[in-house]
């Protein structure tokens, strides 16, 4: 809790979508996250920054319980989504992940057609009542991911045939097709060229209107560009969390300052 003392108190508690308290994470004997507490607001872009290996991606994966798939991984502490503990025995990770979408570092379209990629989520969750319904869901998701115009004529070609930037936007479309409430993005632009990055960043800003977006990034500029809140992680600690503008201009913690000025990381 020591690191949290400087966290701004001006967060509107009622607006917190996700609330984490005292999260610790171990990979085998490696203590990867140390007592992390944070509140993530709805309809806001929150970015996690920090040097590589600081635990920011691990923490992101705690939020939709993707760490469950790793045998040696152990999570303690409390993570609440809309006031409900996501690690409770009654919570089905399958349902949780339908509520919390995720986009990965490297675009990972399934080796299926563009249409089937986007339709996959709605299909497994049984969200479409008819073929027309499904077509509408797919179109809506692709439009919101700002890729519809580029792919509408080749929906049945393999998604792996698209360019890197298009693939990543396809993955975003795939994630939002299930209408999640939170969207987690793990360095979504690290494998993309600058133009594609700009497109995706623009998209993230769009998505903020409907979702709570959490983005892990290794680029401080990106965090500054897209996010309203920023959290700085270092060696498994959440060092500082606050409004992006404030954190980048007047950091409270010397470690944050060192990182921002390039002395660590």
């Amino acid at each position: 809790m020591n690191d949290m003392t400087k966290v701004e108190r001006d967060l509107n508690m009622s607006d917190a979508k996700i609330e984490a308290r005292g999260v610790n994470l171990h990979y085998g004997t490696n203590h990867a996250l140390k007592d992390v507490s944070i509140e993530i607001a709805d309809r806001t872009v929150t970015s996690f920054i920090g040097p590589s290996g600081c635990g920011k991606s691990s923490f992101l994966r705690c939020l939709n319980r993707m760490n469950d798939t790793i045998d040696i991984c152990r999570v303690t502490g409390q993570i609440m989504l809309d006031g409900q503990d996501i690690n409770a025995a009654s919570v089905d990770p399958v349902q949780l992940r339908a509520q919390i979408g995720m986009v990965f570092q490297k675009p990972n379209p399934f080796p299926k057609s563009i249409y089937d990629n986007v339709a996959y989520g709605p299909k497994i969750h049984g969200l479409a009542k008819s073929k027309a319904d499904m077509d509408a869901i797919v179109e809506k998701a692709l439009r919101r991911a700002a890729i519809w115009d580029e792919v509408k004529d080749r929906l049945h070609e393999p998604g792996t045939g698209l360019s890197g930037g298009q693939q990543q936007r396809l993955c975003i479309a795939r994630a939002i097709a299930t209408e999640p409430e939170v969207l987690l993005m793990d360095e979504p632009c690290s494998a993309l060229d600058p133009i594609a990055t700009a497109q995706v960043e623009e998209l993230i800003d769009e998505l903020r209107r409907d979702y709570a977006v959490v983005i892990v990034t290794h680029s401080m500029q990106q965090a500054a560009r897209v996010s309203q809140k920023t959290a700085f992680f270092h060696l498994g600690h959440l060092v500082e969390f606050g409004d992006t503008g404030r954190l980048f201009t007047t950091p409270n913690d010397p470690r944050t300052e060192s990182y921002l000025t390039g002395r660590i990381g």
Binding site: N64, M66, T69, V94, Q95, L96, R97, A98, Q99, G101, M102, F104, K106, N108, P109, F110, P111, Y120, G121, I124, H125, C171, R174, A175, T178, L184
Partner: peptide, 15 residues
């Protein structure tokens, strides 16, 4: 099959 595909499907809420 790359781990990323598995993660992709699980993250969408597939069992």
């Amino acid at each position: 099959v790359p781990q990323s595909l598995r993660d992709g499907a699980l993250a969408l809420g597939a069992t």
